[in-house]
Computed example of a mutant assay.
Amino acid sequence: MSDPQTTNPIAEAKENVAEAVPTPPPQQMPESSAQALKSRLQWGEPALTILDVRDRAAFNQGRITGAIPMPMAELTDRATASLEPQREIYVYGDNDQQSNQAASQLREAGFESVSVLKGGLTAWKAISGPTDGPAEQL
């Protein structure tokens, strides 16, 4: 016979388990247009970082003014060593596929706010966004 003062272990366990919360679906990769980024820079919003994930030779030939070179092979290590996970990051590469891949790597490394600059440097130049590099002197 069981003692009536004894509690039911199953009921007790249920009371101590946190309420189940469904896992949210993975978010779509945010993308930003060149115009949206240019507008933010013109408004003087300093709390963002632009990463150029192309190889060093491409970076040296021309880049968005203020972009930081972080080639794909070094991206995760360099970003985690030098940027805060809450930092707002814009990424561009040779093409949108490379940019999306870089953004995925950064998100997997724990970065919370990563946007792909749709169209990359080509789109940036098309709206006369400021650039640096010897190619601009042609």
Score class of each variant (00 low, 15 high):
residue 137 Q to M: 09
residue 37 L to R: 13
residue 120 G to A: 01
residue 18 A to S: 12
residue 102 A to R: 03
residue 14 K to V: 07
residue 38 K to G: 12
residue 59 F to T: 13
residue 101 Q to L: 09
residue 56 R to E: 10
residue 85 P to C: 10
residue 25 P to I: 05
residue 110 G to Y: 07
residue 52 D to Y: 07
residue 20 A to C: 08
residue 100 N to E: 11
residue 7 T to R: 10
residue 9 P to T: 02
residue 80 T to Q: 12
residue 47 A to L: 05
residue 80 T to Y: 06
residue 93 G to K: 00
residue 107 R to V: 11
residue 23 T to L: 05
residue 11 A to F: 06
residue 26 P to M: 08
residue 5 Q to P: 04
residue 10 I to L: 10
residue 16 N to A: 08
residue 103 A to V: 01
residue 76 T to E: 15
residue 41 L to T: 00
residue 135 A to Y: 13
residue 43 W to S: 09
residue 8 N to M: 09
residue 125 K to C: 09
residue 120 G to Y: 00
residue 34 A to V: 02
residue 131 T to N: 11
residue 137 Q to Y: 14
residue 135 A to W: 15
residue 28 Q to P: 07
residue 126 A to R: 07
residue 24 P to V: 07
residue 18 A to Q: 13
residue 98 Q to I: 02
residue 83 L to V: 01
residue 116 V to D: 00
residue 45 E to L: 15
residue 15 E to T: 12
residue 92 Y to M: 01
residue 45 E to G: 11
residue 16 N to L: 14
residue 84 E to R: 15
residue 63 R to E: 01
residue 107 R to N: 13
residue 36 A to V: 10
residue 16 N to R: 08
residue 90 Y to L: 11
residue 106 L to G: 05
residue 113 S to R: 08
residue 32 S to T: 15
residue 18 A to L: 15
residue 113 S to T: 03
residue 81 A to L: 08
residue 25 P to C: 04
residue 135 A to R: 14
residue 3 D to L: 13
residue 107 R to C: 15
residue 111 F to E: 00
residue 97 Q to Y: 09
residue 32 S to D: 03
residue 91 V to P: 07
residue 6 T to R: 08
residue 13 A to M: 11
residue 40 R to T: 05
residue 83 L to A: 01
residue 78 R to M: 14
residue 75 L to Y: 04
residue 73 A to I: 13
residue 1 M to H: 13
residue 55 D to M: 13
residue 59 F to A: 09
residue 45 E to N: 11
residue 27 Q to F: 03
residue 47 A to E: 12
residue 23 T to V: 14
residue 130 P to E: 10
residue 60 N to C: 03
residue 55 D to I: 06
residue 83 L to I: 02
residue 104 S to L: 07
residue 113 S to G: 09
residue 76 T to D: 12
residue 57 A to K: 15
residue 131 T to D: 02
residue 125 K to H: 02
residue 70 M to I: 10
residue 106 L to Y: 14
residue 127 I to R: 05
residue 6 T to C: 11
residue 132 D to K: 14
residue 58 A to H: 14
residue 10 I to P: 05
residue 51 L to Q: 01
residue 74 E to R: 08
residue 99 S to M: 07
residue 37 L to F: 11
residue 136 E to T: 04
residue 38 K to S: 10
residue 95 N to Q: 03
residue 76 T to Q: 10
residue 12 E to N: 07
residue 42 Q to M: 14
residue 40 R to W: 07
residue 55 D to W: 06
residue 93 G to C: 09
residue 67 A to I: 02
residue 110 G to C: 15
residue 3 D to N: 11
residue 67 A to K: 04
residue 96 D to V: 12
residue 28 Q to E: 14
residue 36 A to R: 15
residue 100 N to W: 01
residue 2 S to P: 04
residue 40 R to G: 07
residue 30 P to T: 08
residue 68 I to F: 05
residue 118 K to F: 15
